[in-house]
């Protein structure tokens, strides 16, 4: 049982890494950051799904995983002399709340064009709001989570430049 959970977790992390890498290639990242992007993507996926396994809400889990990427990428950027955006953006893309977005669109469409029964329409309103707001909050926590560490730690770079 425990082993099964861990294996599933590793599988999901692996595919998160692959997704991060796919977007990295789409954004044409430098060749020497390919492995870094894969590892950061897999690491972020691992953290997010580990937290969600312990019943932590998807919004908070996404925020923590995105901040992990943000915090790691600043010292890493200094070490291998690349701007942090190069490997901070691709790893957070796999955490985009695609399924919530899909459920929201699906519920809106059913509500507007298909369902007449008033009881079902109430359920659809509930689905639109739950999925829609979860999607918005996950998106906010991803952008804030990945960008905030860079803004917090950037002070040192600017000082270095001024001298």
């Amino acid at each position: 049982m425990m082993l099964e959970v861990i294996l599933k977790l590793l599988e999901v992390s692996f595919w998160s890494g692959i997704a991060a890498l796919g977007f990295g290639l789409l954004f044409n990242i430098p060749k020497n950051s390919i492995l870094t992007v894969f590892l950061l993507g897999a690491g972020a996926g691992f953290i997010k799904f580990l937290l969600m396994h312990f019943d932590i809400h998807v919004v908070l889990a996404s925020f923590i995983a995105a901040s992990f990427v943000g915090f790691i990428s600043v010292p890493l950027a200094h070490k291998i002399h690349q701007p942090p955006v190069v490997f901070s953006i691709p790893p957070v893309i796999p955490m985009i709340p695609g399924y919530f977005a899909y459920e929201t669109v699906l519920s809106i469409m059913n509500f507007t064009f298909m369902v007449d029964d008033s009881q079902k329409r109430l359920q659809l309103i509930d689905a639109i709001f739950t999925n829609g707001f979860t999607m918005v909050f996950v998106l906010i926590s991803l952008t804030v989570g990945v960008a905030l560490p860079m803004l917090l730690m950037k002070k040192s770079t600017v000082k270095h430049l001024d001298n």
Partner: peptide
């Protein structure tokens, strides 16, 4: 690579 990323997304969900 991007199609594999799409497949990866699908695994994640």
């Amino acid at each position: 690579a991007v199609s594999l990323a799409g497949a990866g997304f699908c695994n994640i969900f």
